[in-house]
């Protein structure tokens, strides 16, 4: 049965506590952006990362358990991910990093920012989840584990043709990567579902200029949630890209990159 070829201590990049990850490095600029992806396939972010790399040195790891990154047994929570990347920031010596969190990666970015903004100068959250704003009956994040894949395609992308489509005819590698990403998402976000109940009470700790970017046609987490999230972060600005879905950076890579570059100036 075909599997993915995971990176190891030789082929991967060490981020923290001996954790080696699949990662890409783009651009050679003095300004550094650390991009934390969501559950999309790594290749889907290529256009966005390349656009961002026109002005930044961009570091894009694949989280443990996603894509081709192994997951150590102890690494089971978003806190674990946050500490891995905070450790990488500490060891990098950088102090002016623009931290970009995409969807699930935005949750990781917020967990990092509430712990320490010492090396982070800007925070960008794109169609992020991770906090609970409503009550028990409010399902703020669509239950992706209870949703047929065809419907997920329509919810993830404003243009559903960007989705995986019929999995029987999709590339085998793509289905494997999707399956592995979904398993990791279940590990980190099954319960409480896609949020940390404590995080909302720590948001005041985010002490850097923050930009919240949202796809106007996000079918997973609504723009209203995004505005609510922005209101919880001191001084955060909200920008909506009307024609984008949940994975705004996949559908509108140039627009999202430009908003980030403008923020950093």
């Amino acid at each position: 049965m075909q599997t993915l070829d995971l990176v190891d201590a030789h082929s991967g990049v060490e981020f923290g506590n001996g954790v080696h990850l699949e990662a890409r490095f783009d651009g050679t600029h003095s300004r550094v952006a650390l991009v934390l992806p969501g559950a999309e396939r790594a290749r889907e972010n290529t256009a966005f990362v390349e656009a961002l790399a026109k002005e930044f040195s961009v570091v894009t790891p694949t989280h443990p358990g996603f894509g081709r990154s192994p997951r150590p047994d102890w690494c089971t929570s978003v806190d674990d991910l946050a500490y891995i990347y905070l450790d990488w920031l500490d060891r990098s010596g950088l102090t002016d990093v623009t931290l970009v969190g995409l969807q699930f990666g935005g949750w990781v970015a917020m967990e990092m920012a509430v712990r320490s903004c010492a090396r982070i100068s800007r925070l960008v959250l794109v169609d992020t989840l991770g906090v609970k704003l409503g009550g028990p009956l409010d399902r703020e994040v669509v239950d992706v584990f209870a949703t047929p894949h065809a419907e997920l395609d329509r919810r993830l992308y404003a243009d559903a043709s960007l989705g995986m489509g019929d999995l029987a005819s999709a590339r085998v590698e793509d289905v494997l990567e999707m399956a592995r990403n979904e398993e990791a998402l279940a590990m980190y976000g099954w319960e409480p579902y896609m949020h940390n109940p404590r995080l909302i009470h720590w948001m005041w700790r985010i002490a850097v200029p923050t930009l919240v970017i949202w796809g106007g046609r996000d079918g997973i987490v609504t723009p209203e949630y995004g505005r609510g999230l922005a209101r919880r972060i001191p001084g955060a600005r909200f920008e909506q890209i009307d024609q984008a879905g949940h994975r705004a950076q996949v559908e509108c890579p140039e627009e999202v990159a430009k908003l980030i570059c403008d923020l950093a100036l």
Binding site: M1, Q2, T3, L4, F145, H149, L167, A168, A170, V172, V175, L176, M178, A179, R180, E182, E183, L185, A186, M187
Partner: peptide, 18 residues
Amino acid sequence: YPPGYMPYFVRAAGLRGQ
């Protein structure tokens, strides 16, 4: 086919199956 219930590659094969 809930993710994690079976190895991801077994699940992928199941999801791709007819």
